[in-house]
Design a binder for these strands. Structure first.
Lengths: 256, 256
DNA sequence: CGTGGCATTGAAAACCGTCAAAATCCGTGG
DNA sequence: CCACGGATTTTGACGGTTTTCAATGCCACG
């Protein structure tokens, strides 16, 4: 039974996801309840089993890194459970968070271009990933058209996601960014069957700020302001969305 | 002979690039002097000809749009000559530039994810593109491994590029952003055989500002300041890089 | 029960945006 | 070829937003 780390039962249809082979590092895409989010979209049973054959899994403790900038690129990863951040160390030694990823999302594609990863991927809670060796995935996607298409869509989606963030960073004020961030998190939790209206942040204020191009104090102040206005409940990392429309309203009319 | 729109001769090895077929919309990747930047990297002659067969070309006048947000996604495009911008209209009706693209670069991959383009692509000078119908390209890349690999690398490079811009937008000050922008342009001109130290900007101050998350006045002020400091020469859109190391120095030590 | 990381809050300063006016450029048409 | 008009750019003064610096408080964890 899929339980997230808060002990909250997911709404999605859940089945015990046992390995299909004797090797307990194996995992079956065909049995995975995240397959509609993942590379497995659109694959028939036969092809799903071929995908199964190249996937292994790995558990990570909170704080562990899945890969680091500079590591040779060998695989892309599908998050089965848990929560990750990706970040880059700038030349001045500052950390910049480039994304937060949750179950069903694919990470590591930054490494394809020069065969080395350009960012770090760190588990922000105990997590489990599917490892998909890239050369095998390439081979398989030449023989399975729908796998090829899905892979391309996932890469393209990453491009589009990055562009949304560029717009956020390039054109929104601090409070707009934070409202957008909360609404985005809320929606992604909801898509995965969790409550859209209350959740635990897995990251610090500093990591949120780094992601949004703001200082941690600014993030904290915006949370406090939203709290005072009755838009959200804030108790440290526990967030309740009390007035989602109110948050959305902050995004629409440009105040200036 | 490849002449750019300023009449400046490119340094790269140049040949007359005649169409290989009677259809003068055809164009030969095998004869293209940009093939080392494009999808054709790593293809042998035989495979190059297969790629030739699916490529057509199109000319655009300055100001014409190659595709618009919402258009059905049909093809990706390699820029043969000219200069483009991609931008998105935000919900509030503000334009946000997401990139400037020049010869040898591939655009349109944002459309793969939902089969519609999410941004507009506009020629900033008279330009010519290679049209690569996406379904045919997918088919071909299933039969040519090196084409598949190159295509994946190009998509990944786009992801990495977007992440660099996220870092710029998230962690740099106005003058750092503009120094980085000028150095990036300079380097890309140089890679294409043009002078790294003098070039014409194809875009307005407002478009630069939109791209960098700044207002046009801030861009103008930074140009003036760099000019006063002897780092660059500025005459409207004509830019000379007088002290590239000085510009780079602005990026390294964080002033605060 | 203390310790250290994390978060909150305040005050002051820096940075960039806004508004406004003038200058320059470019394309067009006379 | 030159004059005109609109778009673009430059520059200044001011104000708002966010950062910076600093101090305090909170919580989780050993």
């Amino acid at each position: 039974m899929l339980i997230n780390s808060q002990g909250k039962l997911s709404h999605v249809d859940l089945k015990v996801t046992f390995p299909l082979t004797t090797n307990n590092m194996r995992v079956a895409c065909s049995q995975c309840n995240l397959r509609e989010l993942c590379l497995a979209v659109g694959l028939d049973d036969d092809d799903l089993h071929k995908l199964d054959d190249l996937v292994t899994k790995r558990k990570l403790k909170r704080g562990q890194q899945l890969y680091r900038a500079g590591d040779a690129f060998e695989a892309i990863y599908a998050i089965r459970t848990g929560f990750f951040k990706t970040d880059i160390l700038t030349e001045e030694g500052l950390e910049q968070v480039t994304g937060f990823q949750m179950a069903g999302e694919i990470i590591g594609m930054d490494g394809i271009s020069n065969e080395h990863h350009v960012c770090n991927a760190t588990a922000l809670e105990d997590s489990e990933v599917c490892i998909m060796p890239y050369d095998q995935l390439e081979d398989l996607s030449r023989s399975i058209k729908s796998l090829q298409q899905q892979f391309h869509k996932i890469m393209s989606r990453e491009i589009v996601r990055d562009q949304s963030l560029m717009i956020l960073l390039g054109s929104m004020r601090a409070e707009e960014r934070i409202a957008a961030f909360l609404l985005n998190l809320s929606q992604r939790m909801h898509m995965r069957g969790y409550s859209a209206s209350e959740f635990h942040l897995r990251m610090t204020r500093e990591e949120i700020g780094s992601y949004l191009g703001l200082k941690l104090e600014t993030v904290s102040r915006a949370f406090s302001k939203f709290h005072d206005e009755g838009l959200i409940g804030v108790q440290q990392k526990y967030i309740r969305i009390l007035n989602a429309d109110g948050l959305r309203a902050l995004l629409n009319h440009t105040p200036s």
